[in-house]
Amino acid sequence: EVYKVKIKIERVLPNGEKVEEEITIEVEGMSEEELLALARELAAEPGVRIKEIEIEKLPP
Rank of each mutant, 00 (worst) to 15 (best):
P59Y: 15
E54M: 15
K8E: 01
R11T: 03
E56T: 15
T24D: 08
K57I: 07
G29V: 05
R49G: 06
I25P: 01
E28R: 02
M30I: 12
K51N: 04
I9N: 00
A44K: 14
G47T: 06
E33F: 14
K4A: 06
L38Q: 03
Y3W: 13
E32Q: 12
V48H: 02
R11F: 03
K4F: 05
P59Q: 07
I25L: 08
A44Q: 12
K57E: 04
P59N: 09
L58S: 07
E32V: 12
I53H: 00
V19K: 10
R11M: 03
I23R: 05
E33Q: 10
T24S: 09
E34Y: 10
M30K: 11
E28S: 04
A44C: 05
E56C: 04
E41L: 14
L13D: 05
K4V: 11
I50P: 00
V27S: 07
I23Q: 02
I50E: 00
E1S: 15
G16M: 04
E17Y: 07
R11L: 02
V5A: 05
E10K: 01
I23K: 06
E45C: 15
K6E: 01
E10Q: 03
I9H: 01
L38R: 11
I7D: 00
V27I: 09
E56R: 05
K6M: 14
P46C: 15
K6T: 08
P14F: 05
E34V: 05
K18C: 09
L36S: 04
R40V: 11
E21W: 11
N15V: 01
E52M: 06
E41D: 14
V27D: 02
S31Q: 09
T24F: 11
A43D: 07
K18E: 11
M30G: 13
E10W: 02
E34L: 13
E34G: 11
A44M: 14
K51R: 09
L58G: 06
G29P: 06
E45I: 07
S31M: 10
R40L: 10
R40T: 15
M30W: 13
E54P: 00
P46E: 07
L13F: 14
Y3L: 07
P59F: 14
P46R: 14
A37W: 12
I50F: 02
V2W: 13
V48L: 08
I53G: 00
R40N: 13
P46M: 10
E52I: 10
P14I: 05
E22M: 08
I55M: 05
G47W: 05
P14Y: 04
